[in-house]
Design a protein around this nucleic acid. Structure first.
Lengths: 245, 245
DNA sequence: CGTACAATTGAGTGAGTTCAAGTGGGGTGG
DNA sequence: CCACCCCACTTGAACTCACTCAATTGTACG
């Protein structure tokens, strides 16, 4: 109970030396003058797994850039039905949306999936920062455009793809995002902490069916998950499944 | 062939007298100085049904505010699978997204569903307009926030609701949007031009099953569609289905 | 060693699909 | 004015992907 040991990995004091800041929303500023970002940082936080960071409908005055660990954005109804809109990985901003719509309620809740360390900023500071220069505004537009594209892709997935196709799509999406951040090993494997329950809620399936589909893909030698690590064995087959199914 | 007769309804010359402009993205400007909007308007356009207005992946330099008629935003794959992201009704802006991400490629295609009349604007002009005043920026943030919320809702629908629930949700959403624009009659009925095929593509179902579900709801006395007009007979039941199923 | 949670497996069911055929209205050409 | 056609809607029957319920195994942790 007392003093629960978090497996955390704290960011360096200076954002200039942070291997993650180079991929965060404020990366143009980090490239120019990293101390500007450090100066705005209000805290470095260690959060245990399963903690709620943002509650749907509330107006957040604080937001976090993940340094290590994963989180989920989700909506939950009273009857227990849940939908996970996205997985947040290191470098992602918890509630980037708040930068676009300051003072408007959050469209989803955010919860840590693993122990997490993150850098906290006041929403207002971040709003100023990301609108404060041409390169930051471009970066923001790029990030939002990517987000919109992602959501449209996900809508298509849920409406028109099979369980296998959706799973393949999700795996590739996460792999690509982690690859940019240099978090994919040479053997095409990477840390993958979500439970099958989370995959089910993200893909609009049940845990049981996710399990069967995962087993099927494993037996086919496409990819497998072991000890919170996902390894892609047959990239080509995975691409094909993501495209066609 | 020659001179196909469009059933069009042209907007008035002055935006100040336009019953639709009051609900468009530039409504704060219309309230203050309607001639500003009129001045930016490059054309009033009549477009027949089935015409493509925007092609996915292209960078649009023009956008349109619908005055009459409907359009759809959609993605289509080579194999024919299609997903309709949203229905656009009078007052909506074709590719409002372009205002947020100028010079970035459109995330979906847009096609007219019926004959349409619309006001055309240069993207750059519109970008300036909607960022040009505090009230416009607020309105833009509000519109985008609503869009994001809508997309999250739709994601939840596709992942976690039955065909009946999705259909009910869609009908209520469109009713509410039309109601704001004063396009819903006293008997809770409104123009509804989409084919069952479009509903299927929007909801991730097949036309056949949409037909069966529609028939079921009609027999239950919830709502019915006749001659491109939808009438809600039992609002309470519809709300319940949208909530619970 | 016991508890708790995650993954796995089996059997039965059902929501939604596929294929195929039939209906009905509105427009067009003869 | 009628015949024809086209398109959207409708219906039936067989099928299957994914769900539900329920039990079992594996694993981490105290």
């Amino acid at each position: 109970m007392g003093g629960l040991a978090l497996k955390i990995d704290r960011p360096p004091l200076s954002c200039g030396e942070c291997r993650i800041a180079r991929f965060a929303i404020y990366r143009p500023t980090v490239a120019d003058s990293p101390q500007k970002v450090c100066h705005l940082r209000k805290e470095v936080r260690a959060t245990p797994a399963g903690r709620t960071l943002v509650r749907e409908g509330e107006v957040p005055d604080f937001l976090y850039v993940l340094y290590s660990g994963w989180a989920i954005c989700y909506r939950q109804r009273g009857d227990g039905r849940r939908h996970i809109a996205s997985f947040l990985v290191p470098g992602d901003t918890v509630l980037l949306e708040a930068v676009c719509f300051p003072n408007l309620p959050a469209p989803f809740s955010v919860k840590t999936l693993t122990d997490v360390s993150s850098c906290g900023f006041a929403t207002n500071d971040m709003v100023e920062l990301v609108h404060g220069s041409v390169s930051q505004r471009q970066e923001l537009a790029r990030a939002r455009h990517q987000l919109l594209n992602f959501m449209h892709g996900r809508l298509f997935d849920l409406g028109r793809r099979s369980a296998r196709g959706r799973l393949a799509q999700l795996v590739l999406d996460i792999r690509d995002r982690l690859a940019v951040r240099e978090m994919v090993a040479a053997d095409n494997s990477f840390a993958f902490p979500p439970r099958q329950e989370h995959l089910a809620d993200a893909l609009g399936l049940t845990t049981v069916y996710v399990n069967r589909t995962l087993g099927q893909l494993r037996r086919e030698g496409v990819f497998s998950i072991e000890q919170e690590r996902l390894t892609i064995q047959d990239e080509h087959a995975l691409q094909r499944i993501a495209q066609e199914e």
